[in-house]
Design a protein around this nucleic acid. Structure first.
Length: 591
RNA sequence: GGCGCGGUAGCUCAAUUGGUUAGAGCCCCGGACUGUCGAUCCGGAGGUUGCGGGUUCGAGUCCCGUCCGCGUCGCCA
């Protein structure tokens, strides 16, 4: 080792010992007659002093010219800092290392930014110089946390008799689901591999193979547009079990959630985690991944709306649509007319035509720009349904079920944040279950699987499968942490007859099914045990447990919104020769 | 693909209604200084205002196009 200690290690008890430290020059303070250097590595910061009596003036002058972020090595003696000169902001602040000189292992060019400067540079620059950005304390903390979370997961599943099996990265494209990343085959002209969107089919086959409990930390790829919490390549903790039902899977993951919260945050989570059905989630929160860190549930006032003279409400209700709203406790004084106009514009982004709002006055009556359209009796009824108290703001959307869900979900999310209805440290984990089996594809009008085509329906819904597929629910479950989908899974179909019916409903005929999933269907004929599983979004877990709002902050080398890598410049052009070898020719060329 | 925000010195930002030579702090370079820890003090360097076009006597500022970054809708079994 080039060093005897790390930069976070030395304390008063080391005073008098000779040590060798290596690290980066975080900062230097040059006094001419002595130079102070803050030496940094991933463990901490130690003050190094180059000064008399042990250092000669030439060494002091040289130390004064060392550039920031250079890698240096120092040999020196640990000393107490002078009386009253300790630094209680540093773990090593009681001591310093007195050195005759410093050895520059690698001088640093003037960096475009320094890791721990007060103003964080723009994200594009951080990503271009990710090696500098990753030196920042926050980034190091996030990467350590990520490593811890993955270790907790691996240990937990190892303790539960899971077997870690790797599945291929080069697979076959299946048209369902997200857009595939494709890899051209050299030896099969015109054919392509697809990168896995998840190891779904392989893990089911591993169950057929009798592995019983499979787990993998799996890299997955989806060629869809990015979001703050979505990257084109991401990591799943993927698992599958045989001879289980949905309760078994959720119970298992409950234990992991509790263990992670305990070990990472020192928080006790009450088990079992609360569960609600998809329908309940949509009714109460307008979304399948509700943020339960705060209340503010959606209330349906359609029945009252029918009785009013307010055309927007009544017309909507009479047309069979819905009037639903939110009660923002004590928000009346926090939102001016102008700010409410802004909220109106906000909900319009989600298809709403407007936002009807009421303020609960001190005397308990409702005031609203549209109040004249309402009888007092109906206003009182609305207030009562909403549980309005003086100072509250009541806001309503009158629209289709879908638009009220989307608009009120977004509005609730925004209000929760702006009104600070939850704390930075709050953690709320829950399950959403019984998702619909199918949803209508807007373009083709066909039924498509909401999760994937191998998802088993609820036993109790089996008889509805043919006649009313829209009312058929799946043995599916999503893990929700702080309003974010942190994992999802299903119990799979192991019955040939039901599988055929599902394909049939989705308009996939036997030949097509055989062509796309033949290998799985084939495997299922050779003694497939009942099985099910789940995949957890590792990046999101880390993001949520770290209290961060952006997934790029927990990925060492993330991609930008246009899926490029600012550091390596990927994706990039390739030689024509490479294309020829792959039997490819590009249609588009950038100008 | 749609909508919104942003791009000015190496970095973070400022620049009145379109008006003088585009400023500040940090960084960098040179000098001074033995107790700093955002060291301090003196001096200096540093600009294709993302790019292209247009309007104008005059554009960082207004208009059009384009590139890049971020957020979001669509999309994400």
């Amino acid at each position: 080792m080039l060093r005897t200690h790390t930069c976070g290690q030395l304390r008063k008890e080391h005073v008098g010992t000779e040590v060798t430290l290596c690290g980066w020059v975080e900062n230097k303070r040059d006094h001419g007659g002595a130079v102070f250097i803050d030496l940094r590595d991933r463990y901490g910061l130690t003050q190094v002093v180059i000064g008399p009596p042990e250092a000669e003036q030439a060494s002091i002058d040289a130390a004064g010219h060392v550039s920031a972020e250079s890698v240096i090595k120092v040999v020196g003696v640990v000393a107490n800092r002078l009386e009253g000169k300790t630094n209680d902001k540093l773990a090593t602040g009681e001591i310093e290392v007195r050195c005759p000189k410093l050895e520059i292992l690698n001088a640093c060019q003037t960096p475009p930014f320094t890791p721990n400067q007060p103003d964080l540079p723009g994200e594009d620059l951080r990503l271009k110089y990710r090696f500098l950005d990753l030196r920042r304390q926050e980034m190091q903390r996030a990467m350590v946390l990520r490593s811890q979370v993955i270790k907790i997961m691996r240990d937990y599943f190892a303790e539960h008799d899971f077997i870690d099996v790797e599945t291929p990265i080069l697979g076959r494209s299946t048209p369902e689901g997200a857009r595939d990343y494709l890899v051209p085959s050299r030896v099969h002209p015109g054919d392509f591999y697809a990168l896995p969107q998840s190891p779904q089919l392989y893990k089911q086959i591993l169950m057929v193979a009798g592995f019983d409990r499979y787990v993998q930390v799996a890299k997955c790829f989806r060629d869809e547009d990015l979001r703050a919490d979505r990257q084109p390549e991401f990591t799943q903790l993927d698992l599958e079990m045989s001879f289980v039902d949905a309760d078994d899977i959720m119970g298992l993951i409950d234990g992991l959630v509790a263990k992670t919260a305990q070990q990472v945050l020192g928080k006790e989570v009450t088990l079992p985690l609360p569960r609600m059905t998809y329908e309940e989630a949509m009714r109460r929160f307008g979304h399948d991944a509700p943020d339960l860190r705060f209340d503010m549930e959606i209330v349906d006032i359609t029945e009252v709306a029918k009785k009013t003279e307010f055309r927007v409400f009544r017309g909507t209700a009479d047309a069979g649509n819905f009037v639903r709203g939110l009660r923002a406790v004590g928000a009346a004084e926090k939102y001016s007319r102008r700010q409410i106009d802004e909220l109106t514009e906000f909900v319009k982004e989600f298809g709403a035509k407007g936002l009807a709002w009421f303020r609960v006055e001190e005397n308990g009556t409702l005031w609203s720009p549209v109040a004249k359209n309402f009888d007092e009796e109906h206003l009182a009824e609305i207030k009562s349904l909403m549980g309005g108290e003086p100072g509250d703001l009541l806001m309503f959307l009158a629209d289709t079920w879908d638009v009220t869900c989307k608009g009120l979900y977004a509005l609730r999310k925004r209000l929760g944040k702006e009104l600070e209805l939850y704390g930075d440290d709050d953690l709320h984990c829950s399950w959403v279950t019984e998702f619909p089996m199918f949803e209508r594809d807007e373009e083709s009008g066909r039924w498509v699987a909401m999760h994937h085509p191998f998802t088993a329906p609820l036993e109790s819904d089996l008889e509805k499968l043919q006649a009313e597929p829209e009312n058929c629910h799946a043995q599916a479950y999503d893990l929700v942490i702080n309003g974010s989908e942190a994992g999802g899974g299903t119990i799979r179909i192991h019955d040939q007859e039901i599988q055929s019916q599902v394909f049939d409903l989705m308009g996939i005929d036997e030949a097509t099914a055989e062509d796309r999933f033949g290998f799985l269907l084939n495997a299922l004929r050779y003694g497939a045990p009942p099985h099910g599983g789940i995949a957890l979004g590792v990046d999101r877990w880390v993001m949520l447990f770290a209290g961060l709002e952006n997934i790029r902050e927990v990925i060492a080398f993330p991609k930008t919104q246009k899926a490029s890598d600012m550091m390596t410049q990927a994706p990039g052009e390739v030689d024509t020769d490479q294309l020829t070898e792959l039997h490819l020719r590009t249609l588009a060329k950038k100008q």
